[in-house]
Amino acid sequence: MKPTRFEIAIALIDQKNAEDINTYSSHGVEFSKELLYSQRMFQKLLQFKSDASEELQIAARAQHICRWKIARNEFPMDRVGYLKWRETLKKMHATITTEILTEVGYSEEFIKRVSFLINKKMIKKDEESQTIEDVICLVFLDYYFEEFASKHEDKKIITILQKTWGKMSEQGHNFALSLNYSDKSLALIKQAIH
């Protein structure tokens, strides 16, 4: 049976992310860092919002497409440089995804919506943009938080958790509290949100 347009788009996004030179090792398996991240985004989205639209699913999968191509150190190592880097990345992610979706025959309207979501426009006002933001935070908390927390002081972690919490919806908060954490991580989260 012929693959659907959606399946082809997802496969092409994965193919791009599989080119990531950065790898992550787990249980003796080497993963392309951004391919693993995009699959985690996709899975977490479907756990969080099982009825997610096709646009939202593609935006989640392509959230970090080819991220390694623009290094953080290409921009000044300050807050302004960081924000500029993030904006430049978002534009690149949207451009690459637009090319893929155009190639497989999606409509201009569909492609514009995916770009809008990748750029995380109107968070707090647009429900799907907010969902993307929630999923990004949930992926961080579920997969990356423990390792990150082990490298920094509690005070810094609490500040980061408070910022993360501030980006999320109430639904996102409830879902975040249902994830499995170590006792220490859970204590830090409770400290941050109370």
Results as ranks from 00 to 15, higher is better:
residue 1 M to C: 13
residue 6 F to C: 07
residue 19 E to L: 14
residue 22 N to T: 12
residue 24 Y to F: 13
residue 26 S to T: 08
residue 34 E to M: 02
residue 35 L to N: 05
residue 40 R to S: 01
residue 50 S to F: 05
residue 52 A to E: 08
residue 54 E to Q: 14
residue 56 L to N: 00
residue 57 Q to E: 06
residue 58 I to F: 04
residue 74 E to C: 05
residue 74 E to K: 13
residue 75 F to S: 01
residue 76 P to A: 12
residue 77 M to K: 14
residue 81 G to L: 04
residue 83 L to Y: 10
residue 84 K to G: 06
residue 87 E to R: 13
residue 88 T to G: 05
residue 93 H to K: 08
residue 95 T to K: 13
residue 96 I to R: 04
residue 96 I to S: 00
residue 100 I to R: 06
residue 103 E to M: 07
residue 103 E to S: 11
residue 104 V to G: 04
residue 106 Y to N: 01
residue 110 F to H: 08
residue 110 F to I: 10
residue 112 K to L: 06
residue 113 R to C: 03
residue 118 I to Q: 07
residue 120 K to L: 04
residue 120 K to T: 08
residue 123 I to F: 01
residue 126 D to C: 01
residue 131 T to N: 02
residue 131 T to G: 02
residue 137 C to K: 10
residue 141 L to I: 00
residue 142 D to W: 05
residue 150 S to I: 06
residue 154 D to P: 09
residue 154 D to N: 12
residue 157 I to V: 14
residue 163 K to G: 12
residue 166 G to L: 08
residue 170 E to N: 11
residue 171 Q to T: 12
residue 172 G to L: 03
residue 175 F to Y: 15
residue 175 F to C: 08
residue 178 S to F: 05
residue 178 S to D: 12
residue 180 N to K: 14
residue 181 Y to T: 04
residue 182 S to D: 09
residue 188 L to P: 03
residue 190 K to T: 03
residue 191 Q to M: 07
residue 191 Q to E: 15
residue 194 H to W: 07
